[in-house]
Design a binder for these strands. Structure first.
Lengths: 190, 190
DNA sequence: CGCGCGATTGAGTAATTTCAAATCTAGTGG
DNA sequence: CCACTAGATTTGAAATTACTCAATCGCGCG
């Protein structure tokens, strides 16, 4: 348990420096939470009180269209942050689902807590600023890949970026992430 | 000219509060710049020293694929921020183009300046954090729209979100933004 | 051993792209 | 003011690609 908090501290310290006092102030704002495979972290319509830092496990955030098809926004694994950020930040009902592909464990941070620690500890404000910038850049890359690449090229790119992910999740979820049907994906790649 | 700086200050003050002293500190970091239609703000391969806040005008950021097709990442208009954020933040050569669809005017902010004003003025760090969060959410929505909606639905959504944009830009650019060929777009919508 | 889920394969259908040509429009210079 | 030209839009038809629906195969778990 203590180990997990150390992991979190090191995660912050990848981007910013923290004194022991600052860390002591921040730490209690993170609440431990565990879920088992197939359980939901967030469901559409719910209020979203927290964002989550993943200690262990694997989740997906996704939307279901009117035909019942699942479209995956993000695979979230160890050391990733996940939430319905639109709902979380603008305090609106969730419009996506987030559930566990594997048994998972997180630290939950509420919006009030986040604003408090950002206000009290400038380094944390900077951490979230930099993290968000990086997230923004990643999403831009994803958009460009959706616009410029074929699903097959996107598959290989994902394979390169997260080689182990392909092993960890069923291929139909990979298809739902890449934006093709599972049959089409199956006909690609050798 | 003074008016433009007032606009910028009001833009910050939409999200955070600034004292006159803080503003006086920040303001000189923004350098005025103008470009005419068809001129480039950023070209691939270049170093990207600045991000830009658009005072007036309209730009597009985009990539060109190996077949020579243009794919638009963003239309950037008045009060938007634009840059190649990957290149800018990670100090790498640009991988996208940004050019002017109309005569445009900006404030340029260098990376060093941004880090300085974020360090000296916490409200500004918070501004960029919140702005970046909002940008992240917007991009997530775009990704979901690319995964779940047809190009025709995306067209109508864009029409709703930025009605005047459709008038201001050639339809082939709209197509390049939506992810379909101009011919296909032309066959949609009545 | 059999059930259920995931992955693969096949065949027909729908949608989009590509290439080509025709039409339309706005800006330029005479 | 008009003719001209380049760019933008539309339309047609063929070719490509992906989707849908259905059936089969494979494997792990109870």
């Amino acid at each position: 348990m203590n180990d997990n908090y150390q992991l979190l501290r090191r995660h912050f310290e990848e981007l910013v420096e923290l004194t022991d006092e600052e860390w002591d102030f921040i730490r209690p704002h993170f609440k431990d939470k565990k879920l088992k495979k197939r359980q939901f972290l967030i469901q559409t319509g719910q209020q979203v009180e927290h964002e989550y830092w993943i200690i262990k496990g694997l989740l997906k955030s996704y939307a279901i269209d009117e035909k019942g098809n699942e479209h995956i926004l993000q695979f979230a694994l160890e050391q990733y942050w996940v939430s319905d950020y639109n709902a979380f930040q603008n305090q609106q009902p969730a419009s996506i689902y987030v559930d566990c592909i594997e048994d998972s464990e997180f630290f939950a941070l509420s919006l009030e807590s986040r604003e408090i620690i950002c206000k009290e500890v400038p380094a944390i404000a900077n951490f979230f600023r930099l993290k968000s910038n990086n997230g923004f850049v990643s999403l831009q890359k994803r958009i460009l890949s959706l616009l410029t690449q074929t699903a097959e090229e996107r598959y290989h790119a994902l394979e390169e970026k997260l080689p182990h992910l392909i092993q960890r999740v069923p291929k139909k979820l990979i298809a739902a992430y890449l934006g093709v049907s599972r049959e089409t994906l199956s006909r690609f790649k050798l």
